[in-house]
Design a binder for these strands. Structure first.
Lengths: 139, 139
DNA sequence: ATATACGATAGAGTTAACTCTAGGTCAATG
DNA sequence: CATTGACCTAGAGTTAACTCTATCGTATAT
């Protein structure tokens, strides 16, 4: 089964612009052409899915191109490509930890926002800056 | 205890440029000045930490400004600010799921890369594209 | 035969988030 | 009193990743 660029756009949730941009940037050197028109095969979509995973997890286009080059270069082949994926997996694992920490932080901040507000911005009987709160508030 | 901009830069791992940029963008309307020079207090660093958490978890500068404006605006105050944080927490929870999915995907792709390579790029007794494997290939 | 639709390219424009440069103030030091 | 170092602003420059425009080619439908 073959696909046109607009069909692949739908399947991958990329815009047609983006797919052509990726091709221009050397991410899709394996796509066939018929009279200049791109022809996508089933397996191409698997590769594009991989590219999307790398992009979604923050790998820059240039590095994705390096990865694809390794994969299409018959000397380096899979080993070098695998090396990149395995290294990138560590990034994703780090992202996971970072996001978990962000979640903890925001939970803490949600709890403490009223107090942070009071300490810095509250007006009324107290002064506006923490000079005023220093009387009631101890660090 | 007061801090200069370069001390805050070290504490927060932001560059001096970035801190001034954030100020320019209205993220730090609460910073005091002495003869034009910024003076940072302890509580300011708490607020900058919150800003960093929001930024690290993908909130755009404009939205962070909106949040800060709510917090410094004595009419809207905490409720509106809390609303934004609570809504943003959902984004972070989504990021967590997305990252977990990315991790699964990359694990799968690491396992299957050799096969993906064979299917699309392998040479030898077979042709280079899948045209060879289907003999002629019909649309 | 012309309009419509879809494909293509080259290259310009956009956006976010910095990052840096030029030029200036001010306080302490030799 | 000149130099050094840290601060300031305005505004220009950078980078990544799109996103769009202009223009063209081809095929099908009316």
């Amino acid at each position: 089964m073959n696909y046109t660029i607009s069909q692949v756009a739908k399947k991958t949730n990329l815009s047609i612009y983006t797919i052509r941009y990726y091709d221009k940037e050397g991410l899709l050197p394996f796509i066939d052409r018929e009279n200049g028109t791109r022809v996508f095969h089933e397996h191409d979509v698997d590769w594009i899915d991989l590219i999307c995973c790398l992009k979604n997890s923050g790998m820059p286009i240039k590095e994705i191109r390096t990865f694809i080059n390794y994969c299409t270069d018959h000397d380096a082949v899979v080993e070098k490509g695998l090396e990149i994926l395995i290294k990138h997996r560590q990034n994703i694992e780090q992202q996971l930890r970072d996001t978990q920490r962000n979640l903890q932080t925001i939970n803490y901040k949600i709890e403490h926002l009223p107090q942070m507000y009071k300490e810095k911005f509250a007006v009324g009987d107290q002064r506006k800056t923490e000079l005023g709160t220093k009387t009631t508030e101890v660090k």
